[in-house]
C-alpha cells in the first residue's frame, strides 16, 4: 500500500504538469464512456437472450393457443389442412440424440483416454488436433456427405449386417431401399458430438493428479483398473456435463439431420426407416412456410427446442459448477 502511494505521487505530478486539469477530466470522460459502452454491450447480450425467448414464444402463441399441449402428442403434420402435431418429430429428436450420445460417449471417452494416458507424446500431438478438426467440419458438409456418400453404403452393406446379427431387436429391422434414414442421421450426429465429448474428457483426464494414479498403480493394479477405479470416478461429473453439452448439440442440429433423415412422416421402430426431428422439420420448411398458422407451428417447435436446448446447457453448467470442474463451454 505504502509502496503504491510512493509510486503514485511522482506519476501524478508528471501527468498534472504535462497537461493539467484537462487530462484529468479527459480521463474521467474516457472512463465513463468506456464503462458505459461495456455496460451496454453486456446488457445487449442479456437482452438478446430475452428477445429470442420473447420473439419465439410470441410468434408461437397462436399455435400454442390453438393446439395446446396436444401438439406434443399429435402425429400428423399436414400444413394444407392446418393440422400440426409434433409427436413424430419429437420422438425422432429424442431417439436420434440419445442414440448418437450412446455411441459418442463411450467412443469419445475411449479416445480421450487414448490421448491423455495411453498414446506417446508425438502420437498425441498429431491425433489430438485431428479429432478436434472433426468439430470444425460444417454441419451442411457433413450432411451432404451423409446423403451422397454414406447413404448408398448403408442399405448395401451396413443394414443387412446389422439385421442379420441383431435382427431380433426391432430397431434393426429389414434393410430399406433408401439410405436416408434415422441410422444415417444418428451416425452424422455421432460424428458431430464425438469431438465435443472427446476433447472435454481429455482435458478432464489430464487434470487427474499424477499422485493419485501413482497411488493406485503402487497397489499392483493394471492400467485399466487405474482408469476404472480412479480416473473415471474422479472425472465422472465432468463427463456427464460434457454429455449434456453433446446432447444439447444433437437435439438442436437441424441442417445435417434434415439432409440425412429422409423427412419421414411416421414413427417407425426401425432405425433403417426414415424419420424426422423437430429441428430438421423446421429446416425442411424454410421455403414453403408462408401460411401464418404453419409458421406459428414452426415457432412452437422452436419453443420446445429452445427449452430443451437451454435445459441441457444449464444442466451441463450446474454439474460442472457443483463438482468444480472447468468445462470450456464455448470453444
Amino acid at each position: 500500500m505504502l509502496e503504491r502511494a510512493v509510486q503514485q505521487v511522482p506519476a501524478r505530478r508528471v501527468a498534472a504538469s504535462r497537461s493539467g486539469a484537462f487530462a484529468r477530466s479527459a480521463d474521467r470522460i474516457g472512463d465513463a464512456v468506456l464503462q458505459a459502452l461495456c455496460v451496454i454491450a453486456a446488457l445487449l447480450a442479456i437482452l438478446l437472450l430475452a428477445a429470442i425467448v420473447y420473439e419465439v414464444v410470441g410468434s408461437a402463441s397462436s399455435a400454442i393457443g390453438r393446439y395446446g399441449l396436444g401438439f406434443l402428442f399429435h402425429r400428423a403434420w399436414k400444413p394444407n389442412f392446418e393440422v400440426f402435431g409434433a409427436a413424430v418429430a419429437l420422438f425422432g429428436t429424442v431417439v436420434t440424440s440419445l442414440a448418437a450420445l450412446l455411441i459418442a460417449v463411450p467412443l469419445g471417452v475411449a479416445i480421450a483416454l487414448f490421448l491423455s494416458t495411453l498414446a506417446p507424446g508425438r502420437v498425441r500431438s498429431v491425433i489430438g488436433p485431428l479429432v478436434e478438426m472433426l468439430a470444425a467440419i460444417p454441419s451442411v458438409i457433413l450432411g451432404f456427405w451423409g446423403i451422397l456418400v454414406l447413404a448408398p453404403l448403408l442399405p448395401a452393406h451396413v443394414e443387412p449386417f446389422l439385421h442379420g446379427v441383431f435382427g431380433f431387436l426391432p430397431i434393426f429391422g429389414a434393410p430399406e431401399q433408401s439410405g436416408a434414414s434415422v441410422l444415417n442421421a444418428v451416425l452424422i450426429l455421432t460424428i458431430m458430438v464425438l469431438p465435443i465429448i472427446a476433447s472435454i474428457s481429455r482435458d478432464l483426464f489430464l487434470t487427474v493428479p499424477r499422485e493419485l494414479t501413482d497411488g493406485a498403480r503402487a497397489l499392483g493394479s493394471t492400467r485399466w483398473e487405474v482408469v476404472r477405479g480412479v480416473v473415471l470416478p474422479s472425472t465422472a461429473s465432468g463427463i456427464i456435463a460434457a454429455s449434456f453439452l453433446g446432447l444439447g448439440r444433437a437435439l438442436g442440429e437441424a441442417i445435417a439431420v434434415a439432409q440425412t433423415i429422409g423427412a419421414g412422416k411416421a414413427i417407425s421402430a426401425s432405425f433403417f426407416a426414415t424419420g424426422n426431428t423437430a429441428a430438421s422439420l423446421i429446416a425442411q420448411q424454410y421455403f414453403g412456410a408462408t401460411d401464418r398458422m404453419q409458421v406459428s407451428a414452426l415457432f412452437y417447435l422452436a419453443v420446445i427446442l429452445l427449452v430443451i436446448g437451454l435445459v441441457a446447457n444449464l444442466a451441463a453448467q450446474a454439474i460442472a459448477r457443483r463438482f468444480d470442474v472447468h468445462v470450456a463451454l464455448a470453444r
Binding site: 419465439v56 444439447g248 438442436g252 442440429e253 437441424a254 427446442l305 446447457n313 444449464l314
Partner: peptide, 11 residues
Amino acid sequence: LDLLYGVPTIV
C-alpha cells in the same frame, strides 16, 4: 452468454 451459446442455431 453461455445460454446464448446453447440456443440451437435453427432457433
